[in-house]
Computed example of a mutant assay.
Amino acid sequence: MVISYDNLWKLLIDKKMNKTDLKDQAGITYNIIARLGKGESVSMESLYKICKCLQCNIGDIMEFKFD
């Protein structure tokens, strides 16, 4: 199983935001952004902050891909 955050990066482009904007507005750390970039798991609290900032649901920013 692989976690894909491709939807998050597409959503940021649609909202004309970059990763630094997301970090600042969502109140998350650079470490979280790095983990997202590597497709690693992050806490539900961090995902909640991102969803709240972007006014979306969790399925709008991530998905599980099964081999």
Score class of each variant (00 low, 15 high):
Gly39Arg: 01
Asn18Tyr: 09
Ser41Trp: 03
Thr29Ile: 03
Lys19Gln: 13
Asn7Ser: 13
Thr29His: 09
Tyr30Glu: 15
Asn57Val: 02
Leu11Lys: 15
Ile28Trp: 07
Asp21Lys: 02
Asn18Pro: 13
Met44Glu: 06
Gly59Cys: 08
Ser41Thr: 14
Asn57Gln: 12
Asp14Leu: 14
Leu54Glu: 07
Thr29Glu: 03
Cys51His: 04
Phe66Ala: 05
Gln55Ser: 11
Asp24Lys: 05
Leu12Glu: 08
Glu45Lys: 04
Met17Ala: 09
Ser41Pro: 05
Leu47Cys: 01
Lys10Gln: 12
Lys10Cys: 07
Glu40Ile: 00
Ala26Lys: 04
Val42Glu: 04
Ile3Glu: 08
Leu47Phe: 01
Met62Asn: 00
Phe66Gln: 05
Ile3Gln: 07
Ala34Asn: 11
Asn18Trp: 11
Lys38Ala: 04
Val42Leu: 03
Asn57Arg: 11
Ser46Met: 01
Ile61His: 13
Ile61Leu: 12
Ile50Phe: 06
Ile50Ala: 04
Glu40Asn: 08
Asn7Lys: 15
Gly39Leu: 03
Asp24Ala: 04
Asp21Ser: 02
Gly59Glu: 10
Ala26Thr: 07
Leu8Gln: 13
Leu12Gln: 08
Trp9Arg: 12
Lys10Met: 11
Val42Tyr: 05
Gly27His: 04
Met17His: 07
Phe66Arg: 07
Asp6Tyr: 07
Glu63Ala: 10
Ile32Thr: 15
Ala34Met: 00
Arg35Pro: 02
Thr20Phe: 06
Ile58Lys: 11
Leu12Tyr: 06
Ile61Tyr: 14
Leu22Gln: 05
Ser43Leu: 00
Asp67Met: 04
Met44Asp: 09
Val42Gly: 05
Glu40His: 03
Asp24Ser: 08
Trp9Glu: 11
Met1Leu: 15
Val2His: 15
Ala34Thr: 07
Lys49Asp: 01
Leu47Tyr: 00
Tyr48Ala: 06
Gln25His: 07
Asn57Lys: 13
Ser46Ile: 01
Leu54Arg: 12
Tyr30Arg: 14
Gln55Asp: 14
Ile32Gly: 02
Gly39Asn: 01
Met1Thr: 15
Asp67Glu: 14
Ser46Arg: 02
Ile3Met: 14
Ile61Lys: 10
Lys38Phe: 00
Met1Trp: 15
Tyr5Asp: 10
